[in-house]
């Protein structure tokens, strides 16, 4: 099969080709891969090697050094130190872990519940659809971040709570996206064909409808990841996130507030980290959407 024909029909191939040829898509992909690599590194280093690697290369992100408080960026501390003398670069790297775990975790949580709900409501319609979607409307009536704060207040702090809180807040967006796609897939002839073949409903839902709804779900997932990373930083900033001294960008920003005029590096670098990561996920999401939707007219961009 020729490359042109493949590029038109094969979803994976279209995304891959986009990333290879489109500079913006490439930039997004590089940032995303880099953040995930940083997160993976900090998880392994912190939990398995007890900060061995980062200590050798830089500094222990947890080590307090009262003699070196708020030191300017230098060769020893490229991003400077915070008010307790901890190395900011090491903490920014470790902070990636929190952002990615919470981001991926809450998106997975929201996707599993939201997608199942979207497919079931679209397929059965009627009362099931009404009850399911009105429940989503209730959730949507609260701003996501407010809903997450309320849930966190009752669940307490920690990784699991924040993943559940954000996950619940993002369920409606997945449910809606999936439902609208599933409604059109449901009337496709292969779904009727499967019913005519006597397939049980479970198989019709999982084998026929679900795989044909993946495209908008993947796009939604990438965008929601970016939003979840910002939300996690926001919640940590408000003191509702994971427990200190776990390094997170939100907690660092919160600590940097009062030194913003005296120690610019303390707020700049965690802020940059959030911006770049979120930008990366948004660019990748944009590119995937353009690659998968011929109508969005996504011309390939070159910088």
């Amino acid at each position: 099969m020729s490359e042109d024909a493949r590029s038109y029909t094969n979803v994976k191939w279209r995304v891959y080709r986009r990333i290879r040829t489109d500079l913006i898509a490439k930039l997004g992909a590089v940032i995303v891969v880099f953040s995930i690599a940083m997160a993976a590194f900090s998880i392994v280093d912190d939990f398995l090697l007890s900060e061995l690697v980062i200590e050798t290369l830089l500094h222990d992100p947890y080590e307090l050094n009262p003699n070196n408080r708020l030191a300017e960026p230098s060769l020893a501390h490229p991003f400077g130190t915070d008010e307790q003398g901890r190395d900011i670069l090491a903490r920014v790297i470790y902070g990636t872990r929190t952002s990615i775990i919470v981001g991926v975790g809450s998106v997975l949580f929201a996707a599993i519940i939201g997608v199942s709900l979207g497919i079931v409501t679209a397929y059965y319609g009627g009362l099931v659809d009404n009850v399911g979607m009105r429940a989503m409307d209730v959730l949507l009536a609260f701003p996501a971040i407010l809903l997450a704060i309320a849930l966190l207040a009752s669940l307490g702090r920690g990784f699991t709570s924040i993943i559940i809180a954000l996950g619940v807040a993002y369920v409606p967006s997945f449910a809606r996206v999936t439902r609208s796609k599933a409604l059109s897939v449901k009337s496709d002839e292969y779904v009727t064909a499967a019913e005519v073949m006597g397939y049980p409903t479970r198989d019709v839902l999982v084998d026929e409808i679900l795989p044909n709804c993946f495209t908008p779900i993947i796009v939604q997932g990438t965008f929601t990841l970016a939003v979840a990373i910002i939300a996690e930083a926001g919640l940590s900033f408000l003191g509702l996130g994971v427990n200190p001294p776990t390094p997170t960008w939100g907690i660092m920003l919160s600590g940097a507030q009062q030194y913003i005029t005296t120690a610019w590096w303390y707020s700049l670098f965690p802020g940059l980290a959030i911006m770049v990561t979120v930008l990366g996920f948004n660019l990748l999401g944009d590119s995937i959407r353009d690659a998968l939707d011929p109508q969005s007219g996504g011309e390939e961009r070159r910088l």
Binding site: E189, Y190, A193, V196, M197, N212
Partner: peptide, 19 residues
């Protein structure tokens, strides 16, 4: 359905699951 009685559709390209 499918066992004793089966069906052939007008547009077979639509009657197969594309995935």
């Amino acid at each position: 359905r499918g066992g004793e009685i089966s069906m052939i559709f007008q547009d077979p390209m639509d009657a197969f699951n594309p995935t």
